[in-house]
Design a protein around this nucleic acid. Structure first.
Length: 945
DNA sequence: CGGAATAACGTG
DNA sequence: ATGCACGTTATTCCGC
């Protein structure tokens, strides 16, 4: 008889008798070692060869409740644990794809352990009042997700897990117990392991031996000696993990240890073992898990059910879990879509077939004060595209399609005729242009010879301002969300995959219906969006900044930047040579050939074959990023070679070859796309190619910049704001010391170092400056002591001291940051200097120095977003000033705090003056703005102007 | 074979 | 858990 049974015979008997009704025995799954007839039923094969995940729900809920920031549903209920739990379940399902996923809960009544030891878990506070309602919600979610829940009277989740683990193992399955509870370590076998969800690491026999130095069989003995303060399991005083490990390695079991107690050296430890003998054995029974809970299971109780996606999404809506909705969609990939897409918006469309009709249409449009437009083309890159057709609408219900490129035999109009008749209309700035992503149409039309004037309303930008960063601002998405209208998808026209059609091959009726839809929808969207912009005080930002910027970005994209392809080719060859040399050296050092570009293979070489110590993990394995390699470089020459190889590979693949394919054959230039509705903070982003991350920090990388050149007889001018984000911080905080430093035009990092270290500026060492610089940036990002410590390779305490010293010297900054957080907490969003909004939830009532993600995001958004506002405004001012001054310069790039222009060589000086003047005076802040201007033949060799 | 996910790394 | 904001690359894996 086992001690467990001895101690709790009644409870066990009772439970098992109640649980087993004759009708159910057929499908019963039990862990009894003597197979009953029931276990020979096919159900005992249920787990064979399957991966069964069992979640310790209560342990997970508590962990999440305390680890995650406060969250409340729109109705005020606390929901942080619910959010975390659901997120974790989705993660488990999508990432681990288990055959079974079962959540084990504690019984609602006290467990049998309480009966054998009244003090059991006596230390535990009562369940937090904010947890209990969350458990109910979690169960609702689990039901919607189709994840089975197991709970049995008198037993804790642990016991259920123990029993399930035994059953799974007996049937030849693999069991993963999702828990951080140390007690569960006794359950480890060759087929049972534990999963730590936070670290995404498994604990199996080997890991256990590494950590505790014991086998799974010895875990209960180990815990009996060590005790567990969180469960109030007493253990033996003075015996900690080290002593317990040693004793058990010598004697094997608790019993054997006590038989040989006399052999131990006399002392307090032996005395305590003697004195607390009873307590040790009692402790062992407290931690020993029951593997024989009468579960009385039906297979259908255990299987994952199909996700009830609608219910799950509805729950997410109610609780405000917008982020999870997208993840949920992934769970139910094949959703039956409604057979007939509801078209809430109806409209009439006409195909303009003759020049006569075009002329009539132009005549009518000339009277309008607004019109919408959309272009159809052969390419998503507007500078590479041919114009296929234009759709127009001067009212919300009726539109026209002007075909230019059509399939063989269909009527079309010549571009020349369209230019003649429609050109003046599009160029008339009295007629406000409405559309979706008008920048695209502007570039296309300009490439065909149109000059479009008078931009009125771009839905994409309006929708973006209302909620940047979270939702999609595509026309399809907006139409569905705001109008309940399911659009005709482009894939319905041109198909998908290998036999995709070109736009000019689509039947004219189809393309006309589609194109006119895209001209009609903006009218309806405008009606919804415009009042919202007003309500949320975003209308001015929209009208004065975002809309005027469209034209400027279109111009930048139209001009593009010239690339010296010959120079690029030479650089590519040079990089290739260095890569080949490094490649051979790497194979030598590694002792074999492998794909250096594969982190997976590299990982095997470094950590399996060469047995280097691993420090950092990724989701799927051990990290080999440059930070790790940097550390390893101290012990072996190989990692440094890998770092070098990677650098050249990046330069060659991304910046030489990637760039070369983007040179437009028509213009010999690259026409990157600047995106105005992508970032969460209001910055622009850039792609195809991304010219905002051209290397500059290393000498080798900078070479790439020399391939960006001005056209013959012209020069490049680069103007960048000095310390724009720190100046913005100084402005907002009005911190006297910081503002003063800027007013005196001091080197800001040196000035801050002098303050923080309490020395005169002349005494600041490069090391001190480096630290001050890191803290300066840290403030903008809401960095924690931990992060700063890691970056500067100093102790956490030292880092915390720096940060404290910083805030002590700059009290205005501390005040300002707390003000940002308080306002964000109160309103649910922050605003930038021009009133741009970003919704952020999760800022705590009383934020600590140790800022969490929402808090860091809030701070960074105000600083980064305001700097973005400022340079956007500068772009508009500079563009207008250039025009008025009659200078030929064109703005061609924006890199967050830098503007790049191309101008005739003899206008460099005048242009530079004007650019600096406009950029420095764009906003009147509490600190001066400083712009550094340089000019030269390429983007690398610039001389100050 | 194509798309999605992942790891890594370039910029401000 | 641990500094914000992006886009591009090669590899790997999955499903067709």
């Amino acid at each position: 008889m086992t001690p467990t049974q001895e101690l709790t015979p009644d409870l066990f008997q009772q439970a098992s008798q109640e649980g087993l009704t004759p009708a159910q025995t057929e499908d019963v799954l039990t862990a009894t070692s003597t197979p009953s007839p029931a276990t020979t039923h096919e159900s005992d094969e249920l787990f064979r060869g399957k991966r069964v995940f069992v979640v310790d729900a209560h342990s997970l809920i508590h962990q999440l409740f305390h680890a995650l920031p406060e969250m409340t549903a729109p109705d005020g209920r606390p929901v942080n644990a619910v959010f975390g739990f659901v997120r974790d379940m989705i993660h488990l399902l999508t990432r681990y794809k288990p055959d079974f996923l079962i959540c084990a809960f504690d019984a609602k009544e006290p467990s049998f352990r309480k009966e054998i030891y009244a003090e059991y878990k006596a230390h535990r506070p009562e369940l937090d009042a904010d947890i209990i309602p969350q458990i109910e919600l979690i169960e609702q979610f689990l039901e919607a997700l189709g994840i089975p829940v197991l709970r049995r009277p008198g037993f804790e989740a642990d016991d259920i897990m123990a029993t399930l683990a035994s059953i799974v193992e007996a049937q030849g399955g693999e069991c993963v117990l999702v828990t951080n509870d140390k007690d569960c370590r006794q359950l480890i076998t060759d087929r049972v392991k534990l999963l730590n969800l936070r670290k995404e690491t498994y604990i199996d026999r080997e890991a256990l031996l590494r950590e505790w130095g014991v086998t799974p069989e010895q875990v209960v003995d180990f815990q009996a000696l060590v005790g567990d303060s969180s469960d109030n399991v007493p253990g033996v005083p003075l015996i900690g993990p080290k002593a317990a490990q040693e004793l058990l390695q010598r004697y094997g079991t608790l019993e054997a240890l006590y038989e040989h107690l006399a052999e131990l050296p006399p002392g307090k430890k032996r005395d305590n073992l003697e004195t607390y003998r009873e307590q040790a054995f009692l402790s062992r029974e407290l931690v020993r898990l029951r593997r024989d809970v009468p579960l009385d299971l039906q297979p259908q109780e255990l299987t994952l059910k199909p996700v009830q996606i609608d219910r799950a999404i509805e729950l997410c809506r109610q609780l405000g879990f917008r982020r999870l909705i997208a993840d949920l969609q992934k769970l139910a990939p094949q959703q039956e879509s409604p057979p007939t897409p509801p078209q809430a918006i109806s409209y009439r469309y006409h195909v303009v077939q003759t020049t006569r009709e075009l002329k009539d249409l132009a005549g009518r449009l000339a009277q309008a004060n607004a019109m919408s437009l959309d272009t159809e083309t052969t390419d998503i890159r507007p500078r590479w595209a041919d114009l296929v057709g234009i759709s127009l609408a001067a009212e919300p219900q009726e539109g026209y399609y002007i075909p230019i490129l059509t399939p063989e035999g269909s009527p079309a109009l010549s571009l020349q005729d369209v230019l003649i008749h429609l050109g003046p209309i599009l160029g008339n700035k009295q007629i406000a242009k409405i559309g979706q992503n008008l920048k695209y149409d502007l570039v296309v039309l300009r490439s065909c010879g149109f000059d479009v004037q008078g931009l009125g309303f771009d839905c994409m930008l309006a929708d973006y301002l209302l909620d940047p960063g979270s939702r999609s601002h595509s026309l399809d998405e907006q139409a569905a969300r705001l109008l309940g209208h399911e659009t005709i998808k482009i894939s319905e026209l041109i198909g998908t995959g290998r036999k995709q059609k070109q736009m000019n091959e689509v039947a004219i009726e189809d393309i006309a219906r589609y194109a006119v839809q895209d001209a009609i929808l903006p009218w309806h969207l405008k009606q919804k969006l415009e009042p919202q912009l007003e309500r949320e005080e975003l209308a001015k930002l929209f009208a004065d900044v975002e809309m005027p910027l469209v034209e400027i970005l279109a111009e930048m994209e139209y001009y593009g930047i010239r690339v010296d392809t010959e120079r690029l080719r030479k650089l590519g060859e040079e990089f290739e040579r260095r890569m080949q040399i490094l490649e051979e050296e790497i194979y030598q050092l590694a002792g074999q050939r492998f794909n250096i570009g594969s982190p997976k293979q590299l990982q095997e070489i470094l950590f399996d074959k060469l047995q280097f110590p691993s420090s950092k993990k990724t989701k799927t394995g051990i990290s080999t990023d440059s930070e790790v390699l940097e550390e390893l470089a101290a012990i072996h020459p190989l990692p440094a070679k890998i770092i070098d190889y990677r650098q050249y590979a990046k330069l060659k693949n991304t910046y030489v070859e990637g760039l070369a394919t983007m040179v437009c054959p028509r213009t010999g230039r690259v026409h990157a796309s600047f995106h105005q509705a992508v970032t969460a903070t209001g910055r622009l982003s850039c792609s195809d190619p991304n010219l905002q991350n051209i290397p500059v920090r290393t000498e080798e990388g900078r070479e790439i910049r020399s391939a960006f050149v001005a056209e013959e007889g012209w020069r490049l001018i680069s103007a960048d704001y000095s310390q724009i984000e720190l100046r913005m911080l100084a402005h907002f905080s009005q911190d006297e010391r910081l503002c003063e430093a800027f007013h005196r035009d001091e080197d800001i990092h040196t000035a801050v170092a002098a303050e923080v270290f309490g020395v005169p500026p002349t005494q600041v060492t490069p090391e001190m400056r480096r630290k001050a610089k890191a803290v300066n940036f840290g403030v903008i990002y809401g960095q924690t002591p931990f992060g700063l410590a890691k970056q500067l390779r100093i102790s956490k305490e030292e880092a915390a001291a720096f940060i404290d010293a910083y805030f002590a010297r700059y009290p205005g900054i501390d005040r300002f940051l707390l003000g940002v957080l308080q306002e964000c907490r109160r309103q649910g969003f922050v605003r930038t200097i021009l009133g741009r909004k970003r919704r952020i939830s999760g800022v705590r009532e009383h934020p600590t120095r140790q800022r969490n993600l929402p808090e860091r995001t809030a701070i960074n958004t105000v600083v980064q977003g305001s700097a973005a506002d400022l340079i956007k405004l500068a772009m508009i001012r500079v563009r207008n000033a250039l025009r008025e001054a009659g200078l030929a310069a064109r703005m061609i790039l924006q890199v967050h705090d830098e503007l790049v222009f191309e101008c005739p060589a003899d206008e460099v000086s005048a242009t530079a003056r004007l650019v600096r003047q406009e950029m420095e005076s764009v906003m009147k802040l509490n600190v001066p703005l400083k712009v550094d201007v340089g000019a030269g033949p390429n983007w690398n060799d610039m001389e100050p102007v």
